[in-house]
Design a binder for these strands. Structure first.
Length: 120
DNA sequence: CGATTGACTGACC
DNA sequence: AGGTCAGCCAATC
């Protein structure tokens, strides 16, 4: 672990990067989810800002991070949305019209599976 | 140190 | 279903 004692991009940002790196392949996450897992349930914006800070890039799969609607970012810095889309598809995540199926691909660290009895 | 912004989100119309 | 308003948080100017 490198000790970036002199440069601290913000403890928050560091956690964000770590969380983003924890996103398994073939899965995506939202800024809000990242913020929540990082310990900041309301810092979705700050997350976006942190990622826009252009992190380690290859080290931080920010392309797996999408908006709450599963939409890709338009202002993607490292190439453009098309690149992000290509990366997502490379992970096995089909992208349709700049969007992904969060219902299927949103990263869920907790086994959700709230099976409800079908009724009416 | 104060004000503004920004890759966001949820609510309201 | 899509567009607008307001709220939240950290980083930057």
């Amino acid at each position: 672990m490198e000790k970036r004692d002199r440069i601290t991009p913000g403890e928050f940002a560091g956690k964000v990067y770590g969380t983003v790196r924890q996103i398994p392949k073939g899965r995506v996450s939202t800024y809000g989810q990242i913020a929540l897992l990082s310990g900041y349930p309301r810092a979705a914006r700050a997350v976006g800002n942190a990622l826009h800070n252009n992190p380690d890039g290859d080290l931080t799969p920010c392309y797996r991070v999408v908006s709450s609607s599963g939409r890709l970012s338009e202002a993607f810095v490292f190439g453009g949305v098309n690149v992000q889309k290509d990366k997502l598809e490379s992970d096995g995540i089909p992208v349709h019209n700049m969007r992904v199926d969060l219902k299927q691909y949103m990263w869920q660290p907790f086994t959700v599976l709230s099976k409800k009895s079908k009724r009416t």
